[in-house]
Nucleic acid binder design. Structure first.
Length: 303
RNA sequence: CGCGGGAUAGAGCAGUCCGGUAGCUCGUCAGGCUCAUAACCUGAAGGUCGUUGGUUCAAAUCCUUCUCCCGCAA
């Protein structure tokens, strides 16, 4: 089976590597290298680097919405395109270019969490399970028929990063399996009544709002770990919060209940005890490490 | 050349602006107290202040080279 792979971030890499080992990847599409990081250097995507390592042709069109790009795509004469977090919308001519169309790895149990940030949204919402769905790509976003699903339990200590890694590996397994017996599987349509959307993560969401219930914030902190991470501001300095737990303490929302032996901040109902933190300019560290040389003033009201 | 912060004892920090014996909390080690303790008391060890060069009577501190870490923004 000749495959065209389309993907961009770390999530896509295990899928690509698996397909390279077990199938025939003839070309890789990924987002163009862009300015990123300090100094705005041009950075190739993780998928780009892996493809180069294996000596596979890499294409980085800015869009697929024109005849030239579509013709080049069709000219590959592959059997199927496998898409994993590519980052570009696929127009109809691309979707229908090959015999088996385009198969997608989506990091949720569809139809729940269609959209951009299914991994984080699942944890943020307090879901007890998540998973991966292998599905057909259609024009409507994440709405295609489903070939196969795999479930993962979301444990109380699982972060967005943890779940991301698990789903990524599971996606590689499932996709490889589906491709091996694609003619035997009859894809199932999604139940439109159960659809929910996972909107992309916005900057404003990263700031902790202590007028929310503590449990809600704990979910969010976990979901946003390690990226993009939540934060609060204390004396003009930004502190990223990577891990916290709900404790039974009460005070006005946003007030620091304890800041020397531990860091407890009051929320709408109970309080949040911060366990892992990253001070501006410093590494991420356990809270007790920071508190050896730094003290948060008790009773300070955080904005 | 996008903007900015940082590197000081095993850990976390202060000291740097305004050069003048390197400090705090914790940990470690020794001793003491205690039925006992992650408790308490006493004492000790542990740092060429990231690297290079310079200014100076004198540099953690001022200027300079390089390396590494990080926040923002994209």
């Amino acid at each position: 089976m000749k495959i065209v792979f389309m993907g961009t971030p770390d999530f896509s890499v295990p899928v690509l590597e698996r397909l390279i080992k077990e199938h025939d990847v003839i070309c890789v599409y990924t987002r163009v290298p862009k300015e990123a990081g300090r100094g705005h250097e041009l950075k190739k995507s993780p998928v780009h680097l892996v493809a180069e390592k294996y000596g596979i042709e890499v294409r980085t069109p800015k869009t697929l919405r024109n005849d030239t790009a579509q013709e080049e795509f069709r000219a590959l004469k592959a059997d199927v395109a496998v898409v994993a977090a590519y980052g570009l919308i696929l127009p109809k001519p691309v979707i229908e270019a090959f015999k088996y169309g385009c198969l997608n790895v989506h990091a949720s149990l569809l139809p729940r969490w269609r959209g951009a940030a299914p991994i984080q949204r699942a944890i943020e919402a307090g879901d007890e399970k998540s998973g991966v769905t292998i599905m057909q790509i259609v024009e409507a976003l994440d709405a295609g028929a489903m070939y196969q699903k795999g479930e993962v339990a979301i444990t109380p200590d699982m972060t967005g990063g943890d779940l991301h890694d698990k789903l990524s590996l599971m996606g590689a397994d499932l996709m490889s399996d589906v491709l091996s017996r694609i003619d035997e599987i009859k894809p199932q349509p999604q139940n439109e009544a159960l659809v929910t959307y996972a909107s992309k993560l916005e900057k404003e969401e990263e700031k902790l709002d202590f007028t929310m219930p503590a449990m809600f914030l704990e979910y969010k902190i976990r979901a946003f770990n390690p990226f993009p991470a939540t934060y609060f501001e204390y004396q003009g300095e930004r502190f990223k919060v990577l891990k916290a737990k709900v404790v039974d303490a009460h005070a006005q929302s946003g007030v620091i209940i304890e800041g020397k032996t531990a860091l407890q901040i009051a929320c709408a109902d109970k309080a949040l005890e911060i366990l892992q933190i990253q001070r501006q300019g410093k590494r991420m560290m356990q809270i007790d490490e920071l508190l050896r040389g730094f003290e948060f003033q008790k009773n300070t009201q955080l904005a």
